[in-house]
Amino acid sequence: MIAILDYGSGNLRSAARACETTGNEVVVTSDPNVALEAQGLVVPGVGAFAACMAGLLAVGGDEIIRKRKLLDRPTLGICVGMQILFSEGTESNGQGNHVTRGVGLWDGEVSKIKAEILPHMGWNTVRPEALSPLFSGVENESFYFVHSFAAKKAVGIRTAWTEYGETFVAAIEDGALTATQFHPEKSGAAGLVLMKNWANTL
């Protein structure tokens, strides 16, 4: 069973439907026990880092994600759901930059992309590392991105990269913890293969 963590963020319906195509039972939940016990947990996320982090803390999602990591239970963070796994995010709030603390499973900062036109919106190709189980069969495909902030340093066991204005992290594989900056649930057939690859680790 795959749980989609409902913390007031994201198009949960699409994430749930994409997970269902892997053949697993899917529940959308904010119940900490269900989210902790599920074979797989998906942490979606759209919007601002600070707002998502506030929503995550409100349902105790940070503790759930940390416990799952200790128990070696697979978790997949998507878009801002990936970014909040880092130690901090910097974001302008109109009165200059401010820093929001993330869950902190990876050391690093999520900062604004240096590009003329933002958000980075649309389909971009990704450079995965060789023998990446997550990208098996979709190494040369495009995925759908929509974001203005990104992590720029390698973390975890394998880092996949993309480029828009500058080079930044597209995906991370780190044992039980997996994350994508792009939206596999919005990346057509390639995204569904990637979801299936992740579901195969459950």
Binding site: G122, W123, N124, T125, R127, F145, E163, Y164
Partner: peptide
């Protein structure tokens, strides 16, 4: 790696 033009 280049962002693709979108056809909508």
């Amino acid at each position: 790696m280049t962002l693709s033009v979108r056809i909508i």
